[in-house]
Design a protein around this nucleic acid. Structure first.
Lengths: 413, 413
DNA sequence: AATGATTAGTCCAGCACATGGACTAATCAA
DNA sequence: TTGATTAGTCCATGTGCTGGACTAATCATT
């Protein structure tokens, strides 16, 4: 049974229709009021009022370009030609609102500012080893970074309505009140940190409450908003660093699970009675396909335990390294087949630490995907490799703010 | 991005608030108008109006029992004692509306009628081997059964607002228009059957459009509504017949996946390079833990290839049979650990063909659950065994109709 | 028994917002 | 220039929620 939801008053009706109209504008790029009325089912009068409110609030602006995202020839309705008064199209405005995305990882901090078009307006990386630092110190530096980004956004006329923070660990959202706890971040050595308190202490308050999430999840979202995930249906975004993280995009949204712990692909079983894993089980994917595991398996083929060295060994054609990655690919493929069957997914995106390894990894993964779920469904799931670089988590975080804004413009009206 | 949703007019506002008030009544059992106003955030005036409409439509009725489902002592608000005019509580009425659930399986047909309380008002099984029959013939017999059930419901003053049909196969809902296709039902030997057309041809039209779904999914829902699933959070309901079916309950709702194919636990990989499966892959769970697989593995310990014979062999302590089931349990446990990690589940329910085997199966499954995801989360997932019998799919189908009705009473107002 | 305190439920004026038809505006075709 | 056609705005109307006033029913106190 659904949780008790909000009552709908007249204002709620307006909020809903506001987001309905804005959604139509977002999806179709540039629409006239008349077309928006058709698309939403509201009357022209109502749409006019809503568009006026959205314009006032800086969400949309007049657009004279005939650039309808429906494509050239706009088979939708009349596209400007023919008799009759031509409409005055409006489009999403990238001039006023923005979202700020922040990310903490073992090697530093990153930040990204997106406008409502989803185009990057500012970004910055602060390289520094966070492995030994206390959360509070990192948060203070993050606060400085955030203020710089807000200044840079302000200089372009942009106001960040909110921020989101990507953390490299299990972010548990207990209760429905939105409060989160970073249970454990292996790379940082943090346990049971309350990000909300840190953010409140060190970061400037914005219009929307800050949001905290797992970096893999945000990276998956970034892929959907501005990467290879854009055209795919439901997919899983898998990335590897020390562990293995996965973000699930289902129905266009991030699937987090009730406690926010969904997507733990790293502990899918791929080898019964296999290597003992830190989680207490045996034969977890993480024991075969994390960067660390591949480095171990590659043995003396890699000069030093870094991803760069592994890549060099592969390029040089070292057999043990090749075998290790081949095996990792088979393991990832096996786990993905389970995930696809369980969740009814259409595609897979390899991201993070898997991107440079993709030339060697894709083959075995693709084989598994072709064999596994193919027979039951029409076609084999699609396999894509991320094109977003190290900004993916911060970009996804920023996108998450933008998405919230577009989904509910009334939040800042 | 969310699909274009409906515009909200004044009627939409009312529909929403109608379901909001009904939801509060459903969750709290028996509430006064004043308490419903508190619970929903609407004013007393509005609630009165909505309650009047719900009463008129037969969804709720006056209830003088002080039986608030909040429990004795109702720590919520004042519970009748104290000064002031006592409220006139209303509760969900089981007297007018009902849902009809139908199920087809290899051994026959079953039907179930539930009222809005979720209590059974009529049920019937028609035993007959459907393995060799054409869909049309089965549908005709199903129509007869449905009409008998509607008559029996009518004799009790009940009107079925809709029906749902549980089928033992992959039900694909392609497109957003709700049209479904039964891709493949291994036990019946049916392929690419359009249930909507069959239902339209052989079953009386009801107020709501008929719904078709997978029997494992409906069984999982039944468990949530009136079985061991009631108290659990998110869970997976696993059942085995010829294959293995699973229903996912997430956030109190059935998780179907975009194409309606979610929950294919049977093709999780549990043994790399294991037995070749009909799906094209190797080492699928189905090859180890379906009833057929256990029968094969039990070899000569079972007299004939039936579930009953397997049960007898287990009871007699036959070692090969015991080993087969033990192994199946380990395999199921391994697949479940993957599912729990991926989907952030709290519990597991064993149902269908696993129920009689539970005494032998639970042990190894529980072991896997205790080892696997425990470390990352607080506690080990809970393991429960279904108590609903062979009516589970039909009961879940009926419950699905009731749920739709309670979620949106405006559908029949 | 009478009175006051307290809470439940209804009545009614007011208001917010969507609707639909009428009206003005801007373009193309003849 | 005129008519046809479509876009956008104006205004009267209607629906449904709100909030305060009012009536109803009970307990506690005198």
């Amino acid at each position: 049974m659904a949780q008790a939801s909000e009552p709908v008053r007249h204002t709620g009706m307006r909020e809903h229709n506001l987001s309905l109209v804005l959604g139509a504008i977002v999806r179709h790029g540039s629409v006239t009021r008349a077309r928006a009325a058709e698309l939403t089912g509201l009357t022209k009068t109502t749409v006019s009022g809503l568009v006026a409110a959205l314009t006032e609030a800086g969400f949309v602006a007049p657009a004279d370009a005939r650039a309808d995202a429906d494509g050239p020839g706009a088979r939708g309705e009349r596209s400007g030609r023919g008799p009759g008064r031509p409409g005055a199209p409006v489009a999403v405005s990238g001039a006023r609102h923005a979202g700020l995305g922040l990310a903490v990882d073992a090697d530093g901090l990153s930040a990204f500012v997106l406008d409502l078009h989803g185009t990057a307006r500012a970004h910055e990386v602060v390289v520094r080893d966070n492995r030994t630092r206390a959360p509070d110190a990192v948060a203070a530096e993050l606060g400085d970074l955030a203020r710089r980004m807000l200044d840079r956004a302000g200089a372009q006329g942009l106001t960040a309505a909110g921020l989101a923070l990507a953390l490299p660990g299990l972010v548990d959202r207990r209760g429905g009140d939105g409060r989160t706890v970073l249970r454990f971040a292996p790379n940082l050595g943090w346990r049971n940190v309350a990000p909300d308190a840190l953010l409140a202490a060190h970061l400037p308050p914005l219009r929307l409450p800050p949001e905290t999430g797992n970096e893999a999840n945000f990276a998956a979202l970034a892929e959907r908003w501005s990467g290879v995930g854009a055209g795919l249906g439901d997919y899983i975004h898998v990335s590897a660093e020390v562990g293995i993280g996965a973000g699930l995009i289902i129905g266009g949204e991030l699937f987090r699970g009730t406690h926010g712990l969904a997507g733990e692909l790293g502990h899918c079983l791929v080898e019964p009675d296999g290597a003992l894993c830190g989680c207490g089980s045996r034969g977890c994917l993480e024991q075969y396909a994390s960067i660390d595991a591949m480095l171990r398996a590659a043995g003396s083929d890699v000069a030093e335990p870094t991803a760069a060295a592994l890549l060099a060994a592969l390029t040089a054609g070292r057999p043990t390294a090749l075998a290790a990655v081949e095996r990792a690919g088979r393991a990832v493929g096996a786990a993905l087949v389970s995930a696809i069957n369980l969740l009814d997914l259409d595609a897979v995106v390899l991201g993070g630490g898997y991107v440079p390894l993709a030339p060697w990894l894709s083959g075995p993964v693709r084989d598994a995907l072709a064999r596994g779920p193919g027979r039951l469904r029409g076609t084999a799931p699609h396999l894509a490799v991320s094109t977003l670089g190290r900004y993916a988590p911060a970009r996804g975080a920023a996108g998450s703010v933008v998405r919230r804004l577009l989904a509910d413009p009334a939040l800042v009206i």
